[in-house]
Design a protein around this nucleic acid. Structure first.
Lengths: 203, 203
DNA sequence: CAATAAAACGAACGGTCGTGCTATAAATTG
DNA sequence: CAATTTATAGCACGACCGTTCGTTTTATTG
């Protein structure tokens, strides 16, 4: 028996697919097994058996969402050459992912982080670890632009990444809450200002 | 009978006080009447009678939190003279309010906005209207610094406010999720960069 | 095809949810 | 103090929660 070709794996994938969508709508904490089972078209207990606990379902949904993010944002952006080109591509795809109003719910990871940042446990731990990794990757991407001579030698890459993250968050917040796509232009202007007046190390 | 000296008003205030704290911990959507009643020390139905509906309780909690925010941030900052002094004071108090790890839960309005930005209804409407007002006030505060000659004449005040908001959000996100107060320094550096390299209007 | 393992189901559990209703206790008023 | 309004409590409701368990259906294997 191959590891991926069994029935269980297939339905599990379908559950996670719908689970991501549902969690986006109601929040990861408010995701309920009954509602999810109904959307998938199976019984509550049948679905439950795949995870054994609500928390495991939440973690599985987060991991699945993370995988989709990596595919659509990180991996695609890494096809662009190191430097500003890659940074711009990453920012563009990240913005589209996080703040797109196309489908309801915005970015699941951002919403979950806001929801769980005060609830100790595996979910919070997962989100924190993932955030650390993402921030480190961002700094590295900025660093490549420095190495390429496209940003000042003494650019503070961590500060740059921190502010870049703020631009994404502000766009996410305003686009989603105020339903005004005009804020995408401000996000773009913010990136250009970061590039043209990059934060420098103090030393 | 005076309007404020009756018993009902007093307990209602106590309920909202505890309600803010509880909503910070579990989220506004997950705030339950039973748990809140227990914390306040009264019966579920007794508490419920004050609001008549869960949604009214949520709105009342939000309004109460808003009032506290206005007192501690806006009103205090407006004691400083117009210009960069007021802007810095506002930023400092805002940061302290939103990202302080002193008491659990962070900023209720930010958390609620993230939670309800996809759930149409009175709560969402309230948050959106409040956000519009706050953003307009921010722009005005930046504008005073322009009028005072402390920022370039053609400063884009909306862009400035948008990016300022991003710095707060990024600090909130990182301080709360990663439990690292080091990010307050990045927030400060971000403000200085905004002031020293302010975004300019394109025209 | 038969034997076996995996997956899904249905019913039930103790709890908690928001929300009525009715009665009692407390505060306010004349 | 008595009358009356206001605030609180108690109880019950239907609905849904996460979880368990035994059974039945469906896949996989030899």
């Amino acid at each position: 028996m191959s590891r991926t070709a069994n029935k269980g794996h297939a339905t599990r994938e379908a559950i996670l697919d719908t689970g991501i969508a549902l969690a986006r709508e109601v929040g990861l904490g408010a995701l309920t097994i009954g509602e999810l089972a109904e959307r998938v078209g199976m019984s509550k207990s049948g679905l439950f058996a795949h995870f054994g606990a609500k928390e495991e379902l939440q973690l599985a949904v987060l991991r699945a969402a993370q995988a989709r993010f990596d595919e659509n944002v990180s991996r695609q952006a890494f096809l662009a050459p190191r430097g500003l080109a890659r940074l711009r591509e990453l920012y563009k795809r990240w913005l589209g992912w996080a703040a797109s109003n196309r489908q309801p719910g915005g970015c699941l990871m951002l919403a979950a982080a806001s929801e769980f940042d005060d609830r100790p446990g595996p979910v919070r731990d997962y989100l924190a670890r993932q955030q650390e990794g993402w921030l480190a990757g961002l700094s590295r991407t900025v660093g490549f632009a420095v190495e390429a001579g496209e940003l000042p030698e003494n650019t503070d890459t961590e500060q740059f990444a921190f502010e870049l993250f703020g631009l994404i968050l502000s766009t996410h917040h305003h686009v989603r809450l105020l339903q005004d796509e005009r804020y995408f232009a401000l996000a773009q202007a913010g990136l250009e200002r970061l590039i043209n007046a990059a934060p420098l190390r103090k030393d």
